[in-house]
Simulated assay, not measured.
Amino acid sequence: MTQEFRHGPLVPQVEERLRELLRQERWPVGARLPNEVRLAAELGVGRSSVREAVRLLAREGLLDVRHGAGTFVAERPAEPVEVMLRRARLLEVYEVRRALEVEAARLAARRVRPEDAEALTERLRRRQELLGGTPGEFVDADLEFHREVVELSGNAVLLGLFDSVRPLLREALVDAVVHEPDLPDVSCAHADLLAALHRGDADAAIAATERNLADVMRMISEKVAEQ
Rank of each mutant, 00 (worst) to 15 (best):
A117M: 11
P114I: 06
P135W: 01
S164F: 05
H198I: 09
L39I: 09
D64H: 04
G132R: 01
E122M: 13
E75Y: 12
E101D: 14
L161F: 13
E137L: 04
L158Q: 05
A141N: 07
F72D: 08
V139K: 08
V65P: 05
P34Q: 08
R199F: 13
V186F: 10
R126P: 02
V11D: 03
E25C: 10
E79V: 15
T2D: 15
E36G: 05
L18D: 09
G8D: 10
E115P: 00
G70D: 11
N35V: 11
E171F: 14
L124P: 05
R55Q: 06
L159H: 04
P9E: 11
M217P: 07
G154W: 02
R147E: 14
G70M: 10
S49T: 02
V186Y: 03
V178M: 07
G70K: 02
L91D: 09
S48G: 01
R87C: 10
E20Y: 14
V14G: 02
L57W: 11
E92C: 13
W27H: 08
R23L: 15
E118G: 10
V149A: 03
R127L: 12
D182N: 12
E25F: 09
D140I: 04
V174S: 00
E144S: 03
V83Q: 08
V11F: 07
S49R: 08
E42K: 04
L57N: 04
G133A: 01
D185E: 12
F145H: 00
D142W: 00
A119V: 14
E222A: 12
L22H: 04
P114H: 06
L107E: 11
V157N: 11
M217C: 12
Q128R: 11
T209V: 14
V29H: 10
E15L: 02
D163F: 03
R127Y: 06
